Amino acid sequence: MTAELRERPRSAEELGAMLAGLTPSAQQAAAFRPLDPRPGDVVITPFGKCGTTMLQQMFHQLRMAGSGGDMDFDDISRVVPWLEMAILLPETDVHADQRAAPRGYKSHLHYEGLPKGMRYVVTLRDPHEAYMSMYHFFEGWLFEPGTIQPEAFMPIWARGGPSRVDYFTHLLSWWARRGEADTLVMDYRDVIANKRGAIGRLAALAQLPLSDATAALVEVRTSRGFMLEHKDRFDDHLMRHMNARVLGLPVESSSSKVRSEDARRVPIPPSIAQEIDAMWAERIAPVTGLANYAALAAELAL
């Protein structure tokens, strides 16, 4: 049954209450069978708005390179499914074979929340950037443009999305695994700046062959220009329709995962930057010995 069409929220309180409606029912939870991984399965699991979609596309084009790549999908999460949201997406079968091996999945979970025995790919991103990127993505899709200011968005960002795994819990989990053979942890900005290197590292982790021609194909198909040209494949078609069905939200919106260089970008408010920095000092610095994200990214580059 489709929910009655409603207006998008206009306050953080309304948005939080609406998002609570994405909690699976007891019937859904009882019927859902969690993934039993196969050897070689790959899960792409950055925190939200930290490079997930780009990595899904990179992985899928790598494994389809023998066929000249593949853009024959309406949603990248149709071919690289979202693990923790599959319980709400009846059209998603996480147990099925996929178009090529190895199977790949999307997630925003920490290591502790995922099935064991997989290969794990993570990009970490400066929390200031991650905060504003999520704000811009939600605006126009999950709340009415201009109604919730960035200063009021913190409770939404801090809750960690559907998984309730917050940015700092996620980062510490994957930071602890950065040297493991089954785990690839990269800095988001470094991936953008050195795309060929990131393609090679992902191919190695997934044990996929990589020729110069394949690397060139994947580099083009993960570029901002190419993904903007095909942005309808990267705009959460499945989630938009699920949100319409469950929450009553309009399917169409002004929001986009792949944003042009000249898209509207609001700077992070100083008060929010200070709040994030205080969280870093309290939770990340004592564990890593690193005073800020720039120092962490420098460590990843070594």
Rank of each mutant, 00 (worst) to 15 (best):
W174Q: 04
Y167I: 08
M154C: 03
V185E: 01
A176E: 15
M154N: 01
W174V: 07
R159S: 13
Y167P: 09
M186Q: 13
V185S: 01
W175H: 11
D166K: 06
A152I: 03
E151W: 01
I156D: 05
E151K: 05
V165A: 02
A152V: 01
T169V: 13
T169R: 14
W175N: 10
P155Q: 03
I156M: 00
A152Q: 13
M186D: 08
G160R: 08
S163F: 09
W157H: 14
W157G: 01
P162L: 02
G179F: 08
M186V: 04
S163D: 10
H170K: 07
D182S: 15
G160S: 02
A158Y: 08
L172E: 00
R164S: 13
W174D: 09
I156G: 02
S173W: 05
H170Y: 07
S163K: 00
T183P: 10
D182Q: 11
F153Y: 04
P150W: 01
Q149D: 14
Q149L: 13
M154Q: 09
E180V: 09
L171V: 08
T183Q: 10
D166G: 03
I148C: 10
I148H: 06
G161Q: 06
R159Y: 00
L171G: 11
T169P: 06
G161I: 07
E151D: 15
A158N: 12
R164V: 06
R159C: 00
D182P: 09
L172Q: 03
A176Y: 05
G160Q: 04
A158Q: 15
L171S: 12
S173A: 13
L184S: 07
L184N: 12
I148Y: 03
E151T: 12
E180W: 08
T183W: 09
F153I: 02
D166P: 03
D182E: 14
P155F: 01
W157L: 07
L184M: 12
P162R: 04
R177H: 15
A181V: 13
W175M: 09
P150F: 01
S173H: 06
A152W: 11
R164L: 14
M154S: 10
V185P: 07
Y167E: 06
V165I: 13
P162A: 12
Q149F: 00
W175Q: 10
R164D: 12
L172W: 07
I148P: 01
E180N: 14
D166Y: 08
G160H: 08
V165T: 14
I148S: 01
M154W: 15
F153S: 02
R177E: 14
D182W: 03
L184W: 06
R159P: 05
W174L: 11
M154Y: 15
R159W: 01
V165C: 13
L172N: 07
F153W: 03
M186A: 13
T169D: 15
G161K: 04
